[in-house]
């Protein structure tokens, strides 16, 4: 009989929520494995600068914060595997996870998969993806030195990233669909300080990203909803920050309950409708979408997982005998 791979806890994602949870579980000697399909540190790692994470009075770069969390989790023994989890099911009191490394088993699971950027779904967006249309300013902003940009969105991310992009671009047009900015007061104040470089267009939809014969973005077309007139602004590139959608597609059809927008429903102990499976951070229904709340929820989830494992260890659990050869690595 081949031995199946069984861990005390498998965490899906390695953003701030899971990395914090891993610091707590590994310090309790709970065998902890994380799967990360993208960047260790999650969305925090691709954020230029974080001014509101407690303990850093001058702020900290998102990348540094992510690397600090990563090192701290590994220091206590967390194992981070660069791979993806595709599904989760219950078998014999264990959770079976199908992953890019094959099937593995866990006594408990933390889902901390966060969310991904939403697309606007207008003509030109797909065509110029990566060649004029972008979703990550810290990644691709440097290509727009001395160029004109359009930023789409009116929330914290859009304003924060527009301000970041002023270090490269000569001018930025910020297209905001609503009649109010959703960004915090402090960011709006900062935005005003960049009025020489950023022009804000309120009540303006983004309708099309226009390219030329050479396949380069040259303009963005929109509509000023106050008088239904067409707006066209010249642009060499467009950065889109219109919100996020939860990374829960892989949970469709499982026993884990999602809310109407696909976020994971938990009880007050952060446990989902599948016993032993917990959720924390941006992916959880009711999340406040902040790094500090993600790390806080990560810590809470870890303590609840410990409690769950203590109770579970009173019962003996045996992994099922595999029908085929062992796939663990």
């Amino acid at each position: 009989m081949t031995q199946q791979e069984v861990h005390d806890v498998v965490m899906i994602g390695a953003g701030p929520a899971a990395l914090t949870a891993a610091i707590y579980t590994t310090r309790e000697d709970i065998d902890t494995v994380l799967f990360e399909k993208g960047v260790i540190g999650g969305l925090a790692a691709v954020t230029d600068w974080v001014d509101n994470y407690p303990g850093f009075p001058k702020g900290i770069s998102g990348l540094d914060l992510a690397q600090g969390l990563n090192e701290q989790a590994e220091r206590f023994g967390a194992v981070i595997r660069l791979g993806e989890v595709f599904g989760i099911a219950e078998t014999n009191g264990l959770k079976k996870l199908s992953t890019s490394d094959g099937d593995i088993f866990a006594k408990s699971v933390l889902i901390a998969t966060g969310s991904d950027y939403k697309k606007i779904g207008v003509p030109g967006e797909q065509e110029f993806y990566g060649k004029g249309v972008h979703y990550c300013a810290t990644c691709d902003g440097a290509f727009y030195r001395d160029k004109r940009l359009v930023v789409v969105g009116g929330g914290n991310s859009a304003v924060q990233e527009a301000i970041f992009l002023t270090r490269f671009a000569t001018h930025i047009d910020l297209l905001v669909r609503g009649d109010k900015m959703r960004a915090s007061e402090i960011l709006q104040k900062e935005l005003k300080e960049h009025a020489d470089k950023i022009t804000v267009h309120m009540n303006t939809t983004t309708d099309e990203i226009v390219g030329n014969e050479e396949g380069k973005v040259v303009a963005v077309k929109g509509t000023d909803k106050t008088n239904n007139s067409e707006v066209e602004v010249a642009a060499d590139g467009v950065f889109v920050f219109v919100g996020l959608s939860p990374n829960t597609d892989f949970l469709q059809g499982t026993d884990i309950r999602l809310d109407e927008i696909g976020m994971i429903v938990t009880d007050a102990n952060l446990e989902t409708s599948m016993p032993g499976v917990f959720a924390a951070g941006d992916v959880r229904s009711g999340a406040t979408m902040q790094i500090a709340s993600a790390t806080g929820e990560g810590a809470t989830a870890a303590l609840m997982i410990r409690k769950y494992l203590e109770n579970k260890d009173k019962h003996v659990v045996t992994p099922p005998v595999p029908a085929v050869a062992d796939v663990s690595t």
Binding site: G38, C136, A142
Partner: peptide
């Protein structure tokens, strides 16, 4: 790469 690119860190790490 660029200074602020987190995905660059991941490629180098991998």
């Amino acid at each position: 790469t660029t200074n602020t690119c987190a995905y660059c860190v991941m490629v180098k790490k991998w």
